[in-house]
């Protein structure tokens, strides 16, 4: 029997039974934006940047199973405008001062904003007060840039077996917390070679003393845009 397919922006994409729209699209070399999704973890469905339109409904491509014959709209003005609005909300909710951020040029949030040509934050800035945690000898936490994707929480719990991070509070009072009586990273068993130390898509979890080892202008998304970098390497690629 031939593989079932769905249509992504009018082009046929094959999928395996149970595969999510985003995964199937990626396997076929087609990019759908995502921030909280990561190939090593089950879908989380919190950022909504992977929004697509299926049968008139806006759904998360990372958490919606592909269906044979479905017509999926992704790279359309309507959906990209919605994504841009989500990005703008993420930018004003935290403190994203890119010129002083070590992650600039390697940051997925910033690169997605470039991809979607977000030129203004549009909304009123919250300018929240979020002190940094520099207690750990090797790693700095700058909470000002957290987008609550929970990737560090999941990586620490599921891969490092440590549960160093947790999200507390709800809605606008949500906070990334460090699991220690003192609340300080130095008082946990976190280590610089943990999976959780390398998974943050933005500039929260930063290894100390290497911030500018790669100069601005020569970084990941200086060399290629996110929609290329984010796709899995196909066989034969270098």
């Amino acid at each position: 029997m031939s593989q079932p397919t769905f249509l992504l922006d009018g082009q046929s994409v094959p999928f395996d039974d149970g595969q999510m729209i985003l995964e199937a699209a990626r396997a076929a070399g087609r990019y759908i934006p995502h921030l909280c999704w990561h190939p090593d973890f089950p879908p989380h469905g919190s950022c909504k940047l992977c929004v697509v339109k299926v049968a008139g409904r806006h759904v998360s491509a990372c958490a919606t199973p592909a269906r044979a014959g479905a017509e999926v709209e992704s790279d359309t003005p309507e959906i990209n405008t919605e994504r841009r609005t989500l990005l703008q909300m993420l930018f004003v909710e935290g403190n994203h001062f890119c010129p002083a951020c070590e992650k600039s040029g390697d940051c997925q949030l910033q690169a997605m904003a470039y991809d979607l040509e977000m030129t203004t934050p549009r909304f009123r800035h919250f300018f929240p007060d979020r002190p940094v945690d520099a207690s750990h000898p090797e790693v700095l936490l700058d909470f000002n840039r957290c987008i609550y994707c929970e990737l560090c929480v999941r990586a620490s719990r599921e891969q490092d077996g440590k549960a160093v991070f947790a999200l507390t509070g709800r809605g606008i009072n949500k906070k990334l917390a460090v699991n220690a009586e003192s609340g300080r990273l130095a008082d946990t068993d976190f280590a610089a070679n943990d999976k959780a130390a390398h998974i943050c898509p933005v500039g929260v979890i930063l290894k100390k003393r290497v911030g500018f080892a790669v100069p601005i202008g020569e970084r990941t998304y200086d060399r290629a845009p996110l929609h290329e970098v984010a796709l899995p390497k196909l066989e034969g690629d270098t």
Partner: peptide, 18 residues
């Protein structure tokens, strides 16, 4: 036209906002 980071999001001077 808002030209540059400070006009667009407050930039460096806005780092005093908290």
């Amino acid at each position: 036209v808002a030209m540059g980071a400070c006009a667009i999001n407050g930039g460096l001077p806005a780092q005093r906002n908290h």
